[in-house]
Amino acid sequence: MSQKEDVCQYRLMIARDTLEVIQGKWRLPIIISLTHGNKRFGEIQRDISDISPKMLSQELKALETNKIIIRTLHDSMPVTVEYSLTSLGLTMKKLLDEILDWGVLFRKEILEK
């Protein structure tokens, strides 16, 4: 294999890793919701009105496993749980901005014609 092919294979592997973390209908909306600050489960669900509680719970667990978000339990009565982006999750801001900018372009070029 040439060095060029090695670089290509490496870049494809990185792209697959990235897509594994952000894939699906709900993960990016959850991450975008949390870019606006720490939120409780119900607040995230209000932001993403068409997600079921079961799906939101599953996706939050997956994002927590991948160290994109952190789940914090607050010792109060009743106990409250808050979700926030980790330092790794916060590094996604530039990526999210690029995705949203491209989405605006896509919407203008394809969906609004």
Rank of each mutant, 00 (worst) to 15 (best):
E82P: 12
L88H: 09
W102I: 01
V104G: 01
L85N: 00
K108A: 03
M13Y: 11
L90F: 06
I70S: 08
R107Y: 08
L85I: 00
T35H: 15
I14R: 15
L100H: 14
M92W: 12
Y83Q: 04
T91K: 11
Q23M: 09
W26H: 10
K67P: 01
Q23A: 13
D47A: 01
W102T: 04
F106N: 01
M92D: 07
L60W: 01
L34H: 05
T72I: 15
F106D: 00
S76G: 11
L111C: 12
K93M: 06
S49P: 13
P53A: 07
L88M: 14
I69L: 10
A15M: 08
S87V: 03
I99H: 00
L60N: 05
L60A: 04
E5T: 13
E98T: 10
A15D: 06
R27L: 03
N38M: 14
T18R: 14
Q3C: 07
K39Q: 13
L105V: 05
R71Y: 00
K54N: 08
L60E: 01
T18P: 04
R71V: 06
Y83F: 07
E20W: 11
K54G: 10
E59H: 09
I68K: 02
L88F: 12
N38L: 05
E43P: 08
W102V: 03
L73Q: 15
E59Y: 00
I70P: 00
S49I: 08
E98K: 10
M1H: 06
T18H: 14
K108T: 03
Q45P: 08
L28H: 09
E82W: 08
V104Y: 02
K61M: 05
L85W: 01
R71M: 06
G103D: 05
I110H: 03
D17K: 15
L12D: 06
M1C: 05
